[in-house]
Amino acid sequence: MSARGNILGKLRDSLAGTTPRPDEFDERLVTKPWRYAPGDRIARLRSLMEAVHTEVHQCRSDNWPELVAELLNKRNLTNLLCAPAKEHGRALQAYFEATEQRVELLAYDQPVEAWKEELFWNVEASLTGTLGGIAATGTLVLWPDRHEPRLMSLVPPVHIALLKASEIHDNLYDMMVSQDWAAGLPTNVLLVSGPSKTADIEQVLAYGAHGPRELIVLVLEDA
């Protein structure tokens, strides 16, 4: 008999004569305490994210590239990984060219194996979009894809994320259900709620454990 057969067989024997319990999910418990007036969502997300060392900026959807340049220059960063195939990547590229920024824009346009060493040691910052945000927990939702692969938001020490104000949801449940995630998920979904951290030594909080040391969120409001 296979391990599979044995395990399932034992479980079935133990349940002989019983009926499965009904689904008792009560969505009120995961939504009601976590509802906000539309005007309060940004503030809630902001305060939660700032509490865990995230830098949050509110800016207009047409002038954010300027802020990105400023943030990079302030940190003396020399390169930024972004996705030129995406709308925000194009906007950034256009701005950087027009203003002759010194920061080099890099693209994640080949399989990771082809440039692992460089990605892990030389890329200083990355910029990605997000699928949305969650006010209840101060969270960004990322659905990595071909243009913004999984490691893009993880490996570079500074991660800048763009979040449209209109895409901030009250809570995870609302977002998941309204977008029908259960119907099909991408290979990887990430909920990100701050820069990488650890409290494994003496419970002292230290940022930049294995992922980004810094997370910068630009909340984009309509121009």
């Binding site: 133990s14 002989a16 004569g17 019983t18 009926t19 319990r21 009904p22 008792e24 009560d26």
Partner: peptide, 16 residues
């Protein structure tokens, strides 16, 4: 949470 459910089997899965 008060959906009534009763499974009298002694080996039924228990809830709090």
């Amino acid at each position: 949470m008060s959906q009534l459910f009763y499974d009298a089997a002694p080996n039924a899965t228990r809830v709090s």
